[in-house]
Every structure is written in C-alpha cells, then in structure tokens.
Amino acid sequence: MHTIALIVENRPGVLVRIAGLFSRRGFNIDSLTVGSTDNPDYARMTITVDGDEVVLEQVTKQLNKLVNVIRVSELLSSESVERELAIIKVAARKEDRSEIMQIVSVFRAKIIDVSPRSLIVEVTGSDDKVEAMVRLLRQFGIKEMARTGKVSMVRGTKAMVP
C-alpha cells in the first residue's frame, strides 16, 4: 500500500479527472480524501493506492500529466505522520457499557453521543489504530461506521505547497 499526497487546483471537475484516471488505467484506490489548503485556490488530496513499485511509478507519472495537478509526492509512513478519523455507532447494552468505555479510554478515543442502546465513538489515529479499535468494538455489534480515510504529512520543516 502506498500513500500519495497531491496538491490540485481547486476547480470543478478535478476530482473526476483524478478518479477517472485511476479507474481507466486499472489502478486500485484504497482511500481518497480531499480538503482545502491554506490557499483557497488549491486543494490537497491523500490517496492510498494498492500495487507494487511499477504501479506506483505509473500512478505518479500519470497524475503529474494532469494539468490541474500541481504536485504529486509519495509519503513514506516511516517519514510522515498519518491520521484517520472514524466515528462508530456501537451497540451498548447496559452490561457492556463499562467495557466499551474502558476500550475507548485505552485508545484515547471519545464518546460523542450516548443513547439508551448505543454509543457513538470517535477515534483518531493511524489506520492500524483505527482498525484495532474497530476489531475490538465488533464484539458488541457495530451498527454504523464512517471513516475519513487517511491524511498524511511529512515530518520536519519540509513543506509541500503549491
């Protein structure tokens, strides 16, 4: 799995061009996130791609050819910080509540909604951490889940800007 960060022009149709490129060339997107940058003219995307080095090289080169794509960079997990946020609605019977809350506290997650038969848990962290949390909560019954997909940034002063 490879993580690619992109700076793109913040214009209509850009997402379609990028997503279309992946499907057309047979690359598999595992997750894709888009959001604004400090400069409203540009957006930042983080894409995780499944494939070997050859695939990664093709993906990077093909993305670079798109006129609306300003920067493309692979982010190595060893050199960058990565975060994902998930909110999980988990079934919570009376007798399970305290255990769920213990898990939440161990993961430094948060309970952001409480109702008689369920809780909504918010967890932030690397995708491994989110994955581990999801696995543990599964025993109580996950009713619904929303994940943002990964955002990532290189450590240190080096910055990826338009």
Binding site: V54, E57, Q58, K61, Q62, N64, K65
Partner: peptide, 8 residues
C-alpha cells in the same frame, strides 16, 4: 517527452 511512457 512523456515520462509516463518510460517503463510503462
């Protein structure tokens, strides 16, 4: 001239 062709 197209780097994407190299190694494709």
């Amino acid at each position: 001239v197209d780097p994407a062709e190299i190694g494709k």
